[in-house]
Design a protein around this nucleic acid. Structure first.
Length: 735
DNA sequence: GGCCTCCGTTTTTTT
DNA sequence: AACGGAGGCC
């Protein structure tokens, strides 16, 4: 026991040994959050306060869940299997499988991922003859998911105007489809589980009795339904409620855009009568200057629970800032620094290049590639999202749940077997008339036919596959399906598709390792695994490489050196965040997360001009750079120019932004430097200059076009956004 | 059925 | 710039 608790600081120790009561742990970045969580579990077990089966621990990602299991196992020899440790979705799924009948689901119910869900929605909208303008599929998807996250069913949706009525009707139609097909989307896993527990007293009491300790990781990222689920399971109104041990950091809440509700932290405090929040403020990751910078930045946010990170390590190096001329120049600078760091002995994998949006990675990749520095980009297409893999999975799903129209439609004519749009329409019409699934309809109308063509051929194929795979081991089932479905042959006929065949083989490999690792190695379990664990492609290249990722993807990670690039107004903070309530504060938290990833060295950079969406844009440095106290910064521009003038350096890096061509309109417009020098100069203006406008207030000139009386300038106003103004009319006063 | 062209979009993302 | 979707054409 003493070994377990040694080396904890006083706050960590208080959290770990907290009595059998609910607790809220405010755990700053790098404060040993995971350590506290896992040591708490080990402490409960070792001290005899709890048995493994009394413990439920919930995370957001499978990776976090796996890490938790691994670290507990390392702390003490315990049967981890007795504990329920997993993601919200994974745990809800587990309950629904165990009680599928009580939950009103077929035994072989299947999980729809976001793409599957969108496809179902598109099909639904098409059937109702609603085009994109009447109701965009994405919007309906968002509406349905948000409704579910609020715990609302279609029948509870307001229909106060015609559009809301339309939304409610479509939601209802969607629910009907899912029920008939036996499919469940991500939000449904949670809502269904919540409803199951709230309606079924026996089950509820069973689980309440069992889970006396509920531990929640990244609590700030919970949505309202997840919180209600925790509350229900903990049974705050019960005689002996479970102890909820919630660990989170309101300053690192960066998922409001997908429904996370930070207010849950306050709600927990209130609902669970938490008298004292435990704050973990000692940071074991970053050096002083980096923390001071991050603290100063986040202090600009309002309504925080309040927390100030400190470190026992020294101040370390200053935060380095580079003002680039172009995005290419910015990338070039970063690559130069990476080279220098690597030469000093820093491993490439200890260097992270962070950016706000994925599109920004390209310039960086380009420069790294040319410099022959190995790098790895995170994000992008995941294994189980690939079309060939999804096709194969659709065959498998249809075999065990033939009423899944979504799966059927995906493959009824893939590979092509002569079932065209008209045949399909006929089948769908018949199904509607018979009020049954497409599969049942196909059976009824083509059962007698022995034909190997068309729908009858498809029915025969699926039935044959069902028979052939009966009782076979999982990898063998997948091998047969990939082969007999004609998928392999189809891709073999195309020269460019050889990678897809490799992926189908990889799917067999995935099944092989799944059989070795999973407790339940059924096909149903494998399909659930494919949906829920979407395939973090972990195993690949161990080689030393620079890490490229969005700031979101970097959450929870740490690196010796971190570069945050593209720190420009409009990019970071992103323009779109302005339309969202508290959008700027979320952007700032994002910046806070990015900065606190760095251990020893932090670089901030921005570019004056950047190619975005095929157009050169002039940008103003991000306010986030200004929010870092000057005394913590070190400006590298002068050093990097090494004595040259701006003009000399610009010429050297080939910066010729005299004109840019709008490909769409085939027009060439003179931009910045020349015009700025000539025409703008005549007006007493310049790019980058602060100006004042009677109505719009203060702003910065960021672009211009035309000349003479037609001349217009683009001004980024501090209050009202970016506007094009005709100089002949608008009265701009240089400041 | 497959290929081509035009057009619109473009933040972040896990389950 | 780049990608995806829709619609037209052979």
């Amino acid at each position: 026991m003493t070994a377990l608790l040694s080396n904890l600081n006083p706050e960590q120790l208080e959290a770990v040994t907290w009595p059998h009561q609910s607790a809220l742990i405010l755990a700053g970045a790098g404060s040993g959050k995971t350590r506290v969580l896992t040591t708490r579990i080990a402490y409960l077990l070792q001290s005899g306060h709890a048995q493994p089966h009394n413990i439920l621990a919930v995370t957001f990602t499978n990776k976090a869940a796996r890490e938790m299991v691994a670290r507990i196992s390392a702390l003490l020899p315990v049967n981890v299997r007795g504990m329920w440790i997993g993601t919200f979705h994974g745990l809800c799924h587990r309950m629904l499988r165990a009680h599928y009948q009580d939950a009103g689901l077929p035994q072989a119910f299947q999980i729809l991922d976001m793409a599957d869900q969108l496809a179902v929605i598109k099909r639904l909208l098409k059937a109702r003859q609603l085009d994109d303008k009447a109701l965009p599929p994405k919007q309906l998807q968002w509406f349905i998911n948000h409704a579910k996250e609020e715990g609302l069913r279609a029948s509870q949706m307001p229909a106060d105007d015609s559009f809301n009525q339309l939304l409610a009707e479509c939601y209802l139609a969607y629910e009907t489809i899912c029920i008939r097909e036996g499919t469940v989307d991500f939000a449904e896993l949670l809502l269904r589980c919540y409803e199951l527990l709230s309606r079924n007293e026996i089950l509820r009491d069973h689980y309440r009795n069992r889970f006396q300790h509920i531990l929640v990781d990244e609590f700030q990222d919970t949505n309202r339904l997840q919180y209600k689920w925790i509350k229900l399971l903990a049974g705050i109104d019960a005689q002996q409620p479970a102890a909820v041990f919630a660990v989170g950091d309101d300053d690192q809440s960066i998922y409001a855009f997908r429904g996370a509700y930070v207010g849950n932290m306050r709600a927990l405090e209130r609902d669970f009568n938490i008298a004292k929040i435990i704050r973990l403020e000692q940071n074991y990751r970053s050096q002083g200057n980096i923390l001071d910078a991050a603290n100063a930045l986040i202090a600009n946010n309002k309504g925080r629970l309040g927390k100030n990170l400190w470190t026992a390590a020294g101040q370390g190096e200053p935060v380095r800032v580079y003002a680039a001329i172009t995005d290419m120049d910015e990338a070039g600078f970063i690559v130069d620094e990476v080279k220098a760091l690597h030469a000093e002995g820093i491993a490439l994998s200890e260097i992270a290049l962070l950016y706000r949006s994925n599109a920004q990675s390209r310039v960086l990749e380009h420069s790294l590639f040319n410099a022959a520095i190995s790098y790895r980009v995170y994000g992008g297409m995941r294994f189980f999202d690939r079309q060939e893999v999804k096709h194969a999975l659709a065959y498998l799903r249809l075999m065990i749940l033939p009423d899944d129209d979504h799966a059927l439609l995906r493959i009824i004519n893939f590979p092509p077997r002569g079932i065209g749009t008209r045949t399909l329409e006929k089948l769908q019409d018949q199904a509607k008339m018979l009020d049954t699934s497409l599969w049942q309809t196909a059976l009824k109308t083509h059962e007698k036919s022995q034909s190997t063509k068309g729908i009858a051929g498809f029915v025969n194929l699926i039935q044959t596959l069902q028979q052939q795979c009966e009782g076979q081991p999982l990898p063998e089932i997948i091998r047969r399906v990939a082969d007999h479905s004609g998928l392999i042959a189809h891709y073999q006929n195309k020269q460019t598709e050889s990678e897809r065949i490799e992926n189908l083989k990889e799917l067999v490999n995935a099944a092989t390792s799944f059989v070795h690792e999973a407790e339940d190695d059924s096909l149903t379990a494998f399909l659930a695994h494919a949906s829920l664990e979407g395939g973090e492609h972990q195993a690949d290249n161990q080689q030393d490489a620079v890490q490229l990722m969005t700031v979101h993807a970097a959450k929870g990670l740490e690196f010796h050196t971190v570069f945050i690039s593209g720190l420009e107004e409009g990019l970071f903070p992103h323009d779109n965040s302005r339309n969202e309530p508290n959008g700027l504060e979320e952007e700032r938290r994002l910046m806070y997360v990015a900065m606190t990833r760095a251990q020893q060295r932090l670089y901030l950079s921005y570019a004056e001009s950047r190619m975005l969406h095929g157009q050169v844009r002039m940008n103003v440095p991000s306010r986030f750079v200004d929010e870092v106290p000057e005394k913590l910064l070190k400006n590298l521009r002068i050093t990097h120019f090494s004595g040259r003038s701006y003009g000399q350096y610009a010429a050297e890096i080939g910066y010729k932004a005299d004109t840019y061509t709008d490909q769409r309109r085939k027009t060439t417009t003179p931009t910045i430097s020349k015009l700025a020098a000539k025409n703008l100069g005549e007006q007493g203006l310049d790019i980058g200059q602060q100006v004042s406008h009677a109505k719009f207030g203060v702003g910065t000139v960021i672009n211009c076009e035309g000349n003479g009386s037609d001349m217009r300038v683009q001004v980024k106003f501090n209050q009202v956004g970016t506007k094009w103004l005709a100089l002949a009319y608008a009265k701009l006063t240089p400041l």
